[in-house]
Simulated scan of single mutants.
Amino acid sequence: MTDGVEARRAGELIARLDLTNLNEICTEADVAALCEKAETPEGPVAAICIWPDFVGFARRELSTRIKVATVVNFPRGGDDVDATLAETRKAVSDGADEIDLVIAYERLADDPGFVEAQVRTIKASCGHAKLKTILETGRLFDEGAIRTACHAALSGGADFLKTSTGKVEVNATPASARILLEEIGRAGATVGFKPAGGIRTFEDADGYMRLAETICGLDYPTPERFRLGASSVLADILAVATGTERPGGLAGY
């Protein structure tokens, strides 16, 4: 790619970024800093993704053009639907625009119907908020299990398929992303896709968007249908967008 094309692609990636802080020691001050960072010199990111306790604060701090995403049933992906329902209703009441639900992935092998019902139940309580289902692909281990997770989430009415929590050893990979995108494509390419965790550079981020374009079509990865779950990768993408020196080291989730 030429520098001009890279800069344009970098700007497009910023508009598709879910800027994330899900650190256990996150504070309100950290969320305030994240909100400020979300308004970049190259335009706003798509959303910030934070713990449920900070949703109300973030919604007050942010421009309405930036979505507030939060996580439920996170990160373990348990099977207590009532507890997850309570989390979801509170988050939506506090102003969440998007709910990132960890499915009960450990139940998939024996009872995929439970996961489908779990997703459907949480979706029914999301109101205006979009439901992004986290499949935790790094814990599913084989292609068949990942496809089963996709089918359960899609059948339950998920608005997005998301690879990972970013809290396990293996998070987003091109191989798992391809499977999710193939299933989205078979379902009509109306459901969104979000790789999360391990996205460290502009090249990583752009690779996922190119994969989405290849499998689901060039017009598929709009900010409404394609997101990147990452945080400090923003510095690298901004450097590419502005043609400035890129930071050294790695960016984390």
Results as ranks from 00 to 15, higher is better:
L85H: 10
L85E: 12
L85R: 15
A86S: 13
A86K: 13
E87Q: 15
T88D: 05
T88A: 05
T88P: 02
T88S: 05
R89F: 03
K90V: 13
K90L: 15
K90G: 07
K90I: 11
A91G: 01
A91Q: 02
A91P: 01
V92S: 04
V92K: 02
V92W: 01
V92T: 02
S93W: 03
S93Y: 01
S93N: 09
D94I: 01
D94R: 00
D94A: 11
D94M: 07
A96E: 02
A96G: 00
D97R: 06
D97A: 11
E98D: 13
E98H: 03
E98V: 07
I99M: 04
I99K: 01
D100W: 02
D100C: 09
D100R: 09
D100H: 12
L101K: 03
V102I: 14
V102W: 00
V102P: 12
I103E: 04
A104M: 09
Y105S: 09
Y105F: 14
Y105E: 09
Y105C: 08
Y105R: 15
E106Y: 10
E106V: 11
R107F: 06
R107H: 09
R107D: 04
L108Y: 03
L108W: 03
L108I: 08
L108C: 00
L108N: 00
A109I: 12
A109V: 12
A109H: 08
D110Y: 10
D111C: 14
P112N: 03
P112W: 00
P112A: 01
G113L: 11
G113K: 11
G113I: 07
F114C: 10
F114V: 05
V115L: 11
V115C: 14
E116M: 13
A117L: 07
A117Q: 11
Q118I: 05
Q118E: 15
Q118S: 08
Q118D: 03
V119Q: 01
R120Q: 09
R120T: 11
R120L: 10
